[in-house]
Lab assay of single mutants.
Amino acid sequence: HMTFVALYDYVASGETDLSFKKGERLQIVNNTEGDWWLAHSLTTGRTGYISSNYVAPSD
């Protein structure tokens, strides 16, 4: 899985979204569905959809 880092804080707007904080590391589970990616937070252990605009590759 690809690992990304959050560029900004994000508060989930629905049950399927994932809230995260700036600097949080996220593993991308599925990024084939446009701008919203299914991600797993390595910080909180939660999984949900994130906006690809809010993250950048961590490598």
Rank of each mutant, 00 (worst) to 15 (best):
W36Q: 10
T3G: 05
V55N: 02
S19L: 06
V29W: 12
A39Q: 00
V11W: 09
D59H: 13
F20G: 00
T44Y: 02
A6H: 00
G34Q: 10
L26K: 00
V55Q: 02
A39H: 00
E33M: 13
H40V: 15
A56H: 07
T3P: 05
I50D: 00
G45T: 02
H40S: 07
Y8D: 07
Y54E: 03
T43H: 09
D35L: 09
N31F: 15
D59F: 13
R25L: 15
L38M: 07
Y54P: 03
T47N: 05
T16V: 09
K22H: 04
H40W: 07
L7R: 06
P57L: 12
R46F: 08
V5T: 08
R46S: 07
I28Y: 02
T32S: 12
K21S: 10
H1V: 13
T32M: 12
Y54G: 06
G34N: 08
T16L: 14
L7P: 02
Y49L: 08
G34T: 09
E33C: 13
V11C: 12
K21N: 09
D9N: 06
I50W: 01
T47V: 11
F4C: 07
R46E: 09
Y54D: 08
F4W: 14
Y49S: 02
A39G: 04
T16C: 15
D17T: 08
S13H: 12
Y10H: 09
S19H: 03
S58A: 15
E24V: 01
V5Y: 08
L26H: 05
A56L: 10
V29S: 06
N30G: 15
Q27V: 15
R25T: 14
G45C: 06
L42R: 02
G23K: 00
G34H: 08
T3L: 14
G45P: 00
G23A: 03
Q27L: 14
T3H: 10
Y10M: 05
S19A: 06
T3D: 07
R46P: 01
S19Y: 04
F20Y: 07
I28Q: 15
A56P: 05
P57S: 09
S19E: 06
E15N: 10
T3R: 03
G34E: 08
G34C: 08
Y54I: 06
S13G: 08
F20S: 01
W37Y: 05
S19G: 06
L42K: 04
I28L: 08
G34K: 11
R46W: 10
E15P: 14
I28P: 11
T32N: 09
K21H: 09
E33R: 12
G48L: 02
L7F: 03
K22M: 07
A39F: 04
R25E: 12
S19R: 02
D35Y: 08
G14V: 13
T32Y: 08
E33H: 12
W36S: 09
K22L: 05
T44G: 02
N53V: 13
D17N: 10
K22R: 08
T16Y: 15
N31E: 07
V11G: 04
S52N: 06
D9L: 04
D17L: 13
R25I: 15
E15M: 10
D59I: 13
N30V: 10
S13C: 14
D17W: 14
F4D: 00
K21R: 10
S51K: 15
A6N: 00
L38N: 01
E15R: 08
T32P: 08
L7H: 02
L42I: 09
H40N: 06
G14P: 02
V5A: 02
S52H: 07
L42Y: 06
V29E: 07
S51D: 14
D17F: 15
E33K: 11
T44W: 03
S52I: 10
V55K: 02
D59S: 12
Q27G: 03
G34R: 08
V55S: 02
A6G: 04
N31L: 11
P57D: 07
K21T: 09
K22C: 07
S13V: 14
A56M: 12
F20I: 06
H1K: 10
R46N: 09
V55E: 03
L26M: 07
A6Y: 02
G48M: 04
W36R: 15
L38H: 03
D59M: 12
V29M: 12
S41K: 00
